[in-house]
Nucleic acid binder design. Sequence first.
DNA 1: TTCATTGCCTGACTAAAGTCAGCTAATGGA
DNA 2: TCCATTAGCTGACTTTAGTCAGGCAATGAA
Lengths: 297, 297
Amino acid sequence: MEMDGISRVRRFNRAVSTEIGALDSSFLGRGRPLGEARVLCRIGAKGATVAAIRDDLALDSGLLSRLLRSLEGQGLVEVAPDPADRRRRIARATKRGLREVAAYDRLSDTRAAALLERHSGRTWAALLEAMDRIACAVGAERIVIDTADPHDPDARQCLEGYYGDLARLFDTGFDPAVSLDPEPEALRPPVGDFLVARCDGMPVGCCALKGAGSAVGEVKRLWVAPAARGLGLAERLMAAAEARALGLGMTTLRLDTNRALTAAIGLYRRTGWREVPAFNAEPYAHHWFEKRIAPGG
Amino acid sequence: MEMDGISRVRRFNRAVSTEIGALDSSFLGRGRPLGEARVLCRIGAKGATVAAIRDDLALDSGLLSRLLRSLEGQGLVEVAPDPADRRRRIARATKRGLREVAAYDRLSDTRAAALLERHSGRTWAALLEAMDRIACAVGAERIVIDTADPHDPDARQCLEGYYGDLARLFDTGFDPAVSLDPEPEALRPPVGDFLVARCDGMPVGCCALKGAGSAVGEVKRLWVAPAARGLGLAERLMAAAEARALGLGMTTLRLDTNRALTAAIGLYRRTGWREVPAFNAEPYAHHWFEKRIAPGG
DNA sequence: TTCATTGCCTGACTAAAGTCAGCTAATGGA
DNA sequence: TCCATTAGCTGACTTTAGTCAGGCAATGAA
């Protein structure tokens, strides 16, 4: 059997649907029908409006209503009108409800751990990487870019990935101590910013904007996680950084880069950046770029 | 959110279950309840005993019975006693049934293609690779090793992977024309054999046994697909090759290998192979090994 | 103030899925 | 030959899921 893309997808489907079924079966096993369990977990600790639950779980209005009544009857959920619009109603888990949600959570964790345990040492990392890649590909349209503090754990995780990549790619290796490392203050509002891209909560890329309170800013630390490459995320991060730079009052952006980062260099050239003479003494840089971003510039 | 293994698995689960749901929804959309469609597809072109269907789909005996009656009523399936044991009954698809199965198949193909289409060029290969890895990890216990002809398409696919790996790994590159390439006849019974490992139908590894009709055989072309590495498949292939060698009347096995293949060399040393002086003039070889396999040897 | 709209609920269904006890026929060993 | 076992079937259920037509109260624009 020659395996083309389609049969490989279908084989994947077949293989995973059993696994997924097992993971989802954590929604059973507490003596509650699937529908109720799903609604309860969707409400979770934060609560949710009835409409939000209906949309997320694709439930009929009447059916959801009944499921909520049943959960109320079990003392797991309380539904109250939204003070902002008293037609709308907000469902919240009670103390007991929260305990149930936590129990479901533990069940899911156990199943996930069991899946991992079946795969000893060596395979783990590769397996998780493959899972990340698929989750990113499937959830590509859900990737969101947000401002974050450069010391935020997600930002740190991205930076670790970034430094790791540089150390691997640069023919000289990479030592952050040797590089021109910007002060964290330069990467925070009001002078600069730090953007993190997340896919379903997992950090998958970053881009820093270094400012000095002037009209010239600098783009630093553009990075995309291996699992999220090929989805056009670098472009999106750069576009977000430019938009943010405008918001911070910058009119010109600069950046420096190493010759090993060919994909990034290609991106810069493609998106309106102009190569310029060195504007700093960054020891790892071989190319310097500039882009005027002010509207009508 | 720091992502540990468990949350990554759960995130993967969440991401894929939607996708899988969409792929599985091909079981709907032909105006037949899910249960019937699943049973019909399980019967497929080959037919199946009632017990096998029951086990595979985890259906209650009574429920399955009713589903079969309904499918019979629609003229899609015929159930007849198994001549070998007339208590047991075998369900087979009728002509119309086969057409229906084919239609479901096309639906699945379409969904799979749609999934791939959403991911343009660059991502495809990486995505499929990730899918293969997960399917292999999940289906590891279903990997089977069979005899195949060295010209069989699956065998060829493995050999392409093998040559590709060698070309990448050897510091000299690799040209099959320069290497001592055994005649296909030497890799076929009654003197030799060619083993292919498959996971749910996908070729994931191979191992050749070159014979000359004497008591000394040679192990060649041990290869495991990247997606199936870390699952202990190389060990299994070597063990299968040894067993097959005994069956072909060999008492001693030899092999040569390149110094770049450190994992393979480690495996040989671990499993009772003894390094010996060069026994051939293979230009790509740096190490030669030998193992006595005759029982009590 | 009127009135269409929105958001959710209830009642009255149907369909699908799942459960369980008891039945019959075939099998194979004592 | 007897009889325990196996394989599957049937009838008589219950539960879960899903649908749809109203209904009522809150809302907000005319």
